[in-house]
């Protein structure tokens, strides 16, 4: 099986602090991979490296067999294929939800609002936001904003979606509605990589769970294996704290 996205020996440092210390990871087409681990273990940085928001210092990243980590490569086409959703939503506060979603397709793909509007409407109603399209972000709840952020990334029709702890900033009662969206995407066969603290969710839906510790993938495997019979002492210790 050739991997959709493949990382080999990826290293990333900020000043003196090395955040990723040689990461190897394969994500197959249609697969859902969950990254777990303590805060500061390097999950977010790894995701940001995958769609080139952070240039990597060493190693290689392949997308569909193409090396996208080549220094000097234009990152924009890559980012169109790998969408990312952030913990803090990062919606553009001066635009309505619908304008947030349509901006990139309009500017990058040159599509008109008239063409986009029906597609966007479908996405909004699919995720239960049919009546929120023309609201501004500050008129939406956290869960609604995060769903708009997901729609915004999806509107670029990416092949891979990255989710960076997208439920961590939400009130507990709003987490469910966002996870439902991920469930929906999983059902559609979207290739996804999640950094998450939602262990129950990872266990239920992930194809593969990776435990990151101090910038390395210490252990990875199917969720049942990793959660019920972790091999590494540090994995055990982490799971005993969060479960």
């Amino acid at each position: 099986m050739t991997a959709k996205l493949s990382l080999r020996g990826v290293r990333k440092r900020f000043g003196d602090h090395e955040v990723c210390k040689g990461i190897d990871l394969d994500v197959a087409d249609g697969e859902m991979v969950c990254l777990i681990g303590a805060s500061g273990s390097g999950k977010s940085t790894l995701l940001r490296c995958m769609n080139l928001l952070e240039p990597i210092d060493d190693g290689t990243i392949w997308l569909d067999g193409t090396d996208i980590s080549e220094p000097g490569l234009d990152p924009q086409p890559v980012r169109q294929q790998i969408g990312i959703v952030f913990q803090s939503y990062n919606l553009f506060p001066h635009m309505t939800a619908a304008e947030n979603v349509m901006l990139a397709p309009r500017r990058v793909y040159g599509r008109s609002r008239d063409v986009l509007r029906p597609q966007v409407e479908r996405l909004f109603s699919r995720f239960g936001l049919g009546d929120r399209m023309d609201h501004y972000p500050d008129q939406l709840s956290g869960g609604q904003q995060q769903r708009v952020a997901i729609i915004r990334a999806l509107a670029m029709e990416p092949q891979i979606m990255l989710f960076d702890e997208i439920t961590s900033a939400l009130d507990p009662e709003l987490v469910g509605e966002v996870l439902d969206v991920l469930r929906d995407l999983r059902g559609q066969g979207m290739t996804m990589v999640l950094a998450t603290h939602e262990m129950g969710f990872a266990r239920e839906l992930a194809d593969k769970v990776c435990f990151l510790d101090a910038g390395r993938i210490l252990e990875q495997g199917p969720p049942d294996e990793l959660f019920s019979a972790p091999r590494e002492a540090r994995t055990k210790a982490f799971l005993s704290r969060v479960l």
Binding site: R48, N51, L53, P75, Q76, P77, R79, Q80, G83, I84, F86, S88, N90, L91, F92, L103, A104, R107, V108, R152, A153, M156
Partner: peptide
């Protein structure tokens, strides 16, 4: 910075990021 990141992650050019975001 997160606003620029969000715009970049959508594939917007620097110019468009500045102008629209």
């Amino acid at each position: 910075q997160s606003q620029r990141s969000a715009a970049a992650s959508l594939g917007l050019s620097e110019r468009d990021t500045m102008r629209f975001v």
